[in-house]
């Protein structure tokens, strides 16, 4: 590096594309030694949840046999999740439908609310996605035991494999099971983080380039915001599908 580089870097405005992932605690609360502070992350969780409720409230304010536009959309969302649950889990998945429904719409609205300028993307917090994924995988594990008892350990013994290979296969199965919450959490977190980081970097180019060059990254951000909406949908969908797959595994083994 030449000596001029740090000088140029210091002269340019200091920028941080990861800044909008910072969690800022607005109010510090402590309940029995547990940190229950209200931060921007928590606030946007509530906003997303409120938007879910508002959407369904408006859609089904006065439900009709022949649905209007918003009601059609709400029904499409309902039937979409019902279709996923019925396809993957089947009849035994009915009791879990409200959970999966809530999970999908919570994550979807967190993803989409994160695209509002100045907002906070809750699902870009690894700890939030990890909480959900651990809840899901932990629940599927416990439910598997509840359904099958110690028989559930067979889950880690692949069928149709010679006994000689068992010492190799069983650890692989266990590792792949343990990798489930990690991959589930990291997939959502990394998608959201990467998308928003990309947008932030492009916006930095918009403000640092002169006007005749700025339109290129600006146009890119416009297109990429559309892609981000799509990714928000896809990731919520994937998260839901994998949840259904894990619950199905614990019900029907494999």
């Amino acid at each position: 590096m030449t000596a001029t580089a740090p000088v140029v870097a210091a002269a340019a405005p200091k920028m941080d594309p990861l800044h909008h992932f910072h969690v800022t605690k607005y109010l510090d609360f402590d309940y029995l030694g547990i940190d229950v502070a209200i931060s921007n992350s928590v606030l946007w969780m509530w906003i997303a949840a409120g938007l879910v409720l508002l959407f369904f409230h408006l859609a089904f304010k006065n439900p009709r046999i022949v649905p209007g536009r918003l009601q059609s959309l709400g029904e499409a969302g309902y039937l979409f999740i019902r279709g996923i649950v019925d396809d993957i889990v089947g009849e035994k998945g009915r009791p879990f439908f409200p959970y999966i429904f809530t999970l999908f719409f919570f994550i979807l609205f967190c993803n989409l609310a994160g695209l509002i300028p100045g907002s906070f993307t809750v699902t870009s917090q690894l700890i939030v996605t990890a909480t959900f994924s651990l809840m899901i995988v932990g629940f599927s594990f416990v439910y598997g035991f509840y359904m099958h008892g110690t028989h559930y350990f067979k889950f880690f013994v692949p069928s149709g494999v010679p006994v000689l290979l068992m010492p190799l296969m069983i650890p692989i199965e266990i590792i792949s099971f343990l990798a489930r919450p990690v991959s589930l959490a990291v997939r959502l977190f990394a998608n959201m983080t990467a998308g928003h980081t990309m947008l932030a970097v492009m916006f930095l180019y918009v403000v640092t380039l002169p006007w005749w060059g700025a339109w290129l990254p600006f146009g890119f951000t416009v297109i990429f915001t559309g892609v981000e909406i799509f990714i928000g949908f896809i990731q919520a969908y994937i998260f839901t599908i994998l949840t259904c797959v894990y619950i199905n595994d614990s019900i029907h083994m494999h």
Partner: peptide, 12 residues
């Protein structure tokens, strides 16, 4: 989505 996630693990 799965394939893309692999790239994003690298980013992480």
């Amino acid at each position: 989505a799965f394939v893309e996630a692999v790239a994003l693990y690298g980013l992480v």
